[in-house]
Design a protein around this nucleic acid. Structure first.
Lengths: 156, 156
DNA sequence: ATCCAGAGTGCAAATTTATACATTTTTTAA
DNA sequence: TTAAAAAATGTATAAATTTGCACTCTGGAT
């Protein structure tokens, strides 16, 4: 199991469960058939920016890095309609939107916290999406599908 | 010293300093003439929602709630703190910052006039840094260190 | 093919944080 | 004021996280 895919799983587990400790996470990972040590998780979590916070009821839990308030004026679940085109070039994905919609869509992508996506830069009607190294185009497109489709089918 | 006023001091210290551990905080509190134990700080911090996060340069620090990704004010000489993460992909360097800080940091990079850096593109919270051809990642990172650490000896 | 450099990992030790329990301090109610 | 109840804190310890070190693996360069 490679680091990148392990991280993808970590992100998924942390986003969908209340993870109270690294040992806790370790067990969940094993439940998914992925093995490593707690020390490795400590390092992964730091690299991913996932830190221990509070669950609001006195307990501790791990949280994905910074959520930010939604500035998009997109119809929930219909963000896909704001994407008018996509082109791959030099390993980068150029996403076209109607004028003014680029940052709204980019924010949604950024907030997904998907590990496969290193980051985005948004202009007015174009988004440059930079995948992490060694992530396939298909994986990135699957990410986008996951992000923008409400009925996400679970995989991995 | 009462709990409430101790908490006021904790908030002040955490917001104005890079606190890396509870022991660290304890010493700063003592420096302000307030004494308690690490156990008490642990309890105070939980109640205040102050959790341990990352400083963007591989280190740990305590962060006020809601300021999870925004702790870094763009104080002159402390721009490094506004860099919350960096990733290399496709020979390009993606720099993450708190929302809204990207262009401020990018301007600083542009003005440095470093040959190794061909240019930058800044979004809201992401900067795409394009190195010149045949410049190593390490060289670029050294550039950034030079740019941001040149006048940082006072703090951090 | 071989060597080298760097990334990644496990293990165990060190460090840091959380908590059980006892004690002290503060608050409440008379 | 005073007794009882509740809250806060310290101590000691447990639990959790981080890190130094050694080893492995991988990708390049010779």
């Amino acid at each position: 199991m490679k680091r990148a895919s392990r991280m993808v799983l970590i992100e998924k587990i942390v986003s969908e469960n209340i993870v109270t400790s690294q040992e806790d996470l370790l067990r969940m990972m094993e439940g998914k058939g992925v093995q490593c040590t707690q020390a490795t998780l400590s390092r992964d979590l730091r690299q991913m920016g996932i830190s221990r916070g509070f669950d609001g009821s006195g307990g501790y839990r791990y949280l994905l890095p910074g959520k930010r308030e939604e500035t998009a004026e997109l119809f929930p679940g219909r963000e896909m309609e704001a994407i008018t085109g996509m082109t791959w070039a030099h390993g980068l994905l150029l996403i076209n939107t109607p004028p003014g919609f680029a940052s709204a869509v980019a924010i949604k992508i950024d907030r997904s916290g998907r590990y496969e996506i290193a980051g985005t830069v948004a202009g007015d009607d174009t988004i440059l999406l930079i995948p992490r190294d060694n992530i396939s185009n298909e994986a990135v497109e699957e990410c986008l599908t996951t992000i923008f489709l409400s009925n996400t089918k679970t995989q991995l």
